[in-house]
Simulated scan of single mutants.
Amino acid sequence: MTPTVRSLPEDAVIQCITSPAFDASPPRLLGQAHLPENVACVLEPIWSISHFPAAEIRIFHLKDVWVAKEGLVFDAEGNLFEETITQHTSSEIETAYEAVVTARCEPTMSTEFGPVALCKKRGIGNYGHWMLEMLPRAYLVHKNVEVSGLRFLIAKNSGRLAESMALSLMSIGIPPSQVIPADDTPRRFEQILMVDGLTHHGAFFSPLVLDPLEAIARPIPLGSPIKILVLRRSTGFRLLAEEDKIICHALERGYTVVDPGLMSLGDQIALFKRASRIVGIMGAAMTNIVFAAPSTPIVTVAPGGMMDTFFWFLAILRGLEYMEVRCPPIGPVRGNSPWDTDLFLDPALYGPVFDGT
């Protein structure tokens, strides 16, 4: 079954916030020969945008709605709000709709009463999506909407990600008592507050996404500068081929080798806040470049076919010196995406990667 798709109602807007304009420049790119033509055709038009004008972010107050899957919102009749479709596939949308249709017929289905801010979207299990897309929604509503009994709907996670989510929320003034963790099961809400226009993954990030992260990082002391090499061993995929050789090279040049996937949120922030140069594999851990000081050199080692502008946007917004090194794949796919193979970093590029030469 496929739902009818509708736009959010204009009369439901309760707040309009101006997102500041900002300028951008293309990344310094090495290994361009490993960037497939179909991927380049998507990335290069975005990289070539030199100015992002001021934009409008709106907060909607919706009544009697259903939330399913990764933040899909349906009205009381089962129509899907188009603005909540964020990289969901047709199959996922159909599955969510069928679940909502079934739930609407359940006589025992309960309703969550009172205002609830939607802080759940596609990418619920990814640290980067939480920190740059979901947490900023919570922050905007928390800071701009005065309403009694406000709670925040987030995705249910476990392990270090769940710990990071809870700590980051508390750091911006939202205690666990105001949080509703939810899985994919449809839930009915009397009132949902929804932020639209803050991000459009791959195409736009408002500078306002940095506000909660700066608030979280501000109290953490600044340590002495260090250069860091960011690895992904804890994930088990998208690793560097000949990694031990690369680690030795980095250590000889004074780098500290880290795996943020094994660290607490506070330790990650402290580490990246003091970094004088950051080299790392494109992935969630590199989200932490947002805590680096402006002008810090960032080198992202990326799979040739990975269609991603996320870290370029972060570098632009934070004012970082950003370089992307595209690498050929080696070995089998170990993750969920075709680019989740090991990566071969050409030794001829060690100079520009680690020394900036």
Rank of each mutant, 00 (worst) to 15 (best):
G319F: 00
E190V: 05
I330G: 03
T300P: 03
Q32T: 10
V301T: 08
P176Y: 00
A203Y: 07
L132H: 07
Y350K: 01
Y127L: 10
W47Y: 15
K143G: 10
A12E: 08
D340A: 15
E98Q: 13
I192T: 12
L271M: 14
S164Y: 02
A182V: 05
G254F: 06
P53T: 05
V101T: 13
F311I: 02
A103M: 11
Q178R: 04
Y139G: 14
R218M: 13
H201P: 04
M165I: 11
P115V: 07
D23C: 08
L80Y: 02
G266P: 01
A76T: 04
A24H: 06
D346K: 01
V65F: 03
A21E: 14
L222W: 05
S110H: 09
A285N: 14
P175M: 09
S7F: 11
W66V: 01
G78Q: 03
K156D: 12
E146D: 15
H61E: 15
I289P: 03
F22C: 10
T102L: 10
T2K: 11
F272Q: 13
A54I: 03
A292H: 03
V42M: 11
S177P: 01
A96E: 05
F113M: 05
P181S: 05
G202Q: 08
G261F: 04
K273G: 09
T95S: 14
V258D: 01
P36K: 10
G159Y: 05
V65Q: 06
P294L: 04
F291Q: 15
F310A: 06
T108A: 14
G78L: 06
S158F: 02
M131S: 14
P27F: 12
E242W: 02
E98C: 10
P26Y: 08
T256I: 08
L229V: 09
E82L: 05
E133W: 09
R6F: 14
M307L: 10
G319E: 12
Q87K: 08
F205W: 05
